[in-house]
Design a protein around this nucleic acid. Structure first.
Length: 642
DNA sequence: CTAGGGTTAG
């Protein structure tokens, strides 16, 4: 290859290597034998970590005449397609100039595209490869199938499957495992299962792909079956199952498995820790999250960008902003997701100004916000009532940052305007936005109607929400209580029977409090806790003191098929009240009480908790479905604006 | 060459 001098000339004129600013730092040619030059160049390539350096070596390869040797050229191609460089354009230029390409070279460029944002190019190149009659080998198929999996291209997968069989690779474990994987995660788990059953040879990778495929298609039971049936498990098997549980919101099961994994003496790696931390974050399990953090430190595990982000997010969602900031400060590379996790932390703690400060600091550090950063900062504005700032940022998304707002961003804006009482503006935004409103959009508007007592509009939206989301029990309850609040008893009852008719039930309110590593859960109206007598006794005491403070239960939110006394009793048994009473019994004076609730706090509970924080001189932190409330000295950090 | 990970509105 490249034997003619004219061809050589045309290569050296390639603009990418024609960089006068880049001195050739290597030994001049001809001083070394060709062999040692090859060895030297390869070693340089291996140590090469910068694009500029790569170009220098590239130039060197041409200058020394090494271009006729396929090995350095292949290595050059391999390096320029490796994920760290992310410069496929450059690789493609190199590739296009190679006149005689062997299978390895074709595989390399296909692999490059299979890991890129344009995986379809990998398939096109494969087509060209066939046209050029270059034989493929066992390595070709995994790359092609990787491209298919990135595109969820089922038809192409089937074609490649046929090709694999025709060309005699039907028993190749890499090819078949790749096939299993694509089928499993591209919505064709049945095909994967069929193939799995027919395979004469399976290995741990085949089993792991089945676990992942079943969890991703929502069949956690089948995933469990594969997990328990497989002959040998490795850390990937365990992690696939743990993250499967997290994906199904079965976070306790996830942590249980994480524990079992240790019992089985499997050392968790970064991926396993990420999945488990994510379970802690969702459960609000600070104790277990801290344990994992300590494990990371003790074992000298490197905190990569994803692990750092999740660690921060765990502390954020467990209510410990200080620790989240500590982790952030220690991070060597502070990437966009770590910044975003912090900004989101301030957002859900209601600290809008801090969120804005950090948003600015981030940009001063040279990091550009992405779509997720914007949902965080817009959430911060809406929860803190920073209307003008929020509007400005929303506009700047498109004009300054060239980011197209998604439905989430419109959701934030509807929430921001609605909370501020700008209902008309919020409605207008919904009408003119280029996306179809979803349940979250209507939910934000409905919440605004609740805060600002717009019963008529609220009822309209309540109806829309039931249409959008008929399987969600909370929707019916909401509409029914709006009718009740308007004194329309008949219609309230009507909505309730509609709910019954649909066979939908209300998700019970559940509050958890963790004491000495044990999580105590309370359901609304649930008297099953072993210390229920004590709790009731405590609650009576609290009720007396509340009364002395002039408190009267606010029963307006409740459905009116109960009489007033019953309503009062029902409201006294809201899960967070039980959990707080329990917390007061079981913790020392002055200790902060931390409660996690699966639904939003109701107005009465909010009022009561404020009073309790004053009467008992306790800080009480309640994590809502959407945010944190810090009750202190009779006030709440949300400013009663939630 | 094949398998497991994150930050997101109501």
């Amino acid at each position: 290859m490249f034997s003619s001098p004219s061809h050589y000339e045309s290569i050296t004129s390639l603009s990418v290597i024609n960089n006068p600013m880049a001195p050739i730092l290597l030994n001049p040619p001809n001083q070394l034998s060709l062999e040692s030059n090859v060895a030297q160049t390869l070693s340089l390539l291996e140590r090469c970590t910068k694009m500029m350096k790569l170009k220098q070596i590239h130039a060197h390869i041409y200058k020394t005449g090494l271009i006729i040797d396929p090995i350095p050229v292949s290595r050059l191609l391999a390096f320029s397609t490796s994920p760290g460089f992310g410069n496929l354009t450059y690789a493609r230029k190199v590739f296009d100039r190679i006149s005689k390409r062997n299978t390895f070279i074709w595989n390399t460029i296909i692999r490059g595209y299979s890991n890129s944002n344009e995986p379809e190019e990998a398939l096109l190149l494969y087509h060209q490869m066939l046209c050029h009659s270059v034989p493929h080998n066992a390595y070709t198929f995994p790359f092609l199938l990787k491209a298919c999996s990135r595109m969820s291209a089922l038809e192409e997968t089937q074609q490649i499957h046929a090709h694999i069989i025709k060309t005699g690779f039907g028993l190749d474990i890499y090819a078949t495992n790749s096939l299993l994987h694509v089928y499993a995660i591209s919505g064709s788990i049945k095909s994967a299962h069929l193939l799995f059953n027919r395979l004469p040879q399976r290995d741990i990778v085949s089993w792991n792909s089945m676990i992942d495929g079943y969890t991703k298609s929502g069949d956690i039971e089948m995933a469990c079956k594969f997990f328990s049936d497989m002959p040998v498990k490795n850390v990937i098997s365990w992690t696939a199952m743990i993250s499967g549980f997290v994906g199904a919101n079965l976070n306790k099961e996830a942590l249980k498995l994480f524990h079992e994994m240790q019992v089985a003496s499997i050392k968790p790696d970064n991926v396993a820790l990420v999945s488990s931390l994510s379970a802690c974050a969702r459960l609000g399990s600070l104790d277990q999250g801290r344990w994992i953090h300590t494990y990371i430190d003790k074992n000298g595990i490197e905190i990569d960008p994803i692990l750092g982000c999740v660690l921060i997010d765990m502390y954020v969602k467990c209510g410990d902003m200080e620790e989240a900031l500590k982790v952030f400060r220690k991070l060597e590379k502070k990437g966009i997701s770590a910044w975003t996790a912090i900004i989101n932390g301030f957002a859900i703690h209601g600290q809008g100004q801090e969120a804005l400060d950090w948003f600015m600091q981030m940009q001063e550090a040279g990091i550009k916000p992405n779509l997720i950063t914007f949902t965080a900062i817009l959430t911060a504005c809406s929860h803190a009532g920073l209307v003008d700032e929020g509007k400005l940022l929303f506009k700047s998304m498109m004009t300054v940052y060239k980011l197209n707002p998604t439905i989430e961003h419109y959701g934030c804006m509807v929430d921001l305007l609605g909370r501020a009482g700008l209902l008309v503006e919020a409605k207008e935004l919904i009408e003119k936005m280029p996306l179809k409103p979803n349940a979250a959009i209507w939910g934000a508007l409905l919440n605004a109607c609740r805060i600002h007592r717009h019963l008529e509009l609220g009822k309209q939206i309540g109806k829309i929400l039931i249409e959008v989301d008929p399987a969600h029990g909370g929707r019916y309850i909401h509409l029914a209580s709006l009718h009740a609040a308007a004194g329309e008893w008949d219609q309230a009852v009507e909505v309730r029977s509609q709910m019954k008719h649909q066979g939908v039930s209300k998700l019970p309110g559940c509050s958890a409090i963790s004491l000495n590593g044990i999580v105590h859960e309370f359901l609304a109206g649930d008297g099953s806790h072993p210390q229920m007598d004590e709790i009731n006794h405590m609650w009576n005491q609290i009720a007396d003191k509340l009364e002395q403070e002039g408190y009267k239960p606010a029963t307006g939110d409740l459905l009116l098929d109960l009489d007033d006394e019953e309503k009062e009793r029902a409201i006294q048994q809201h899960s967070e009240k039980l959990a707080i009473a329990f917390g007061l019994i079981r913790t020392k004076p002055e200790t902060t009480i931390r409660i996690f609730k699966n639904l939003r706090v109701c107005e009465d509970c909010h009022t009561v908790t404020k009073l309790i924080s004053k009467i008992y001189a306790r800080d009480i932190v309640v994590r809502d479905r959407t945010r944190f409330h810090l009750f202190k000295e009779g006030k709440c950090s949300c400013g009663d604006y939630w």
